[in-house]
């Protein structure tokens, strides 16, 4: 299945903004992000902690709907899904 991954802001700078990935049916949202992020050490480290869990401030969306980090591990994606991953910014 083909899934679109979109990394925003700092994540996009490190991992590329948009990409379409080909993954086996029913791959979880978390695994698809993990796999894509693993190509860049700094990018991976900005999204995942040392245990491979999403850092708590990372925001995940599937087709425009928020998915919690815990749910992302068991959310199986489908053909054509769009996943957005972004870091809130804090400056003012």
């Amino acid at each position: 299945m083909k899934v679109t991954l979109r990394f925003f802001a700092r994540f996009g700078e490190l991992l590329g903004k948009n990409r379409v990935v080909d993954a086996p049916e029913n791959t979880s949202l978390a695994d698809i992000v993990r796999d894509a992020a693993s190509q860049n050490g700094e990018g991976y480290g900005s999204i995942f902690d040392e245990q491979g869990k999403f850092r708590d401030y990372v925001i995940l969306m599937r087709n425009g709907k928020r998915v919690s980090a815990a749910a992302a591990e068991r959310t199986a994606l489908s053909e054509g899904d769009e996943v957005a991953v972004f870091p809130p910014v804090a400056g003012g």
């Binding site: 925003f8 802001a9 700092r10 708590d56 401030y57 925001i59 870091p87 809130p88 910014v89 804090a90 400056g91 003012g92």
Partner: peptide
């Protein structure tokens, strides 16, 4: 509103009607 580099975000919280800031950002960066 919040910014970093060339990126920014904004939303308007209307109490009782919309997500609050903590709903949107449960954990600070």
């Amino acid at each position: 509103g919040a910014i970093r580099g060339l990126y920014g975000q904004a939303t308007t919280v209307l109490p009782g009607k919309t997500a609050c800031l903590r709903c949107v950002f449960p954990h600070p960066p």
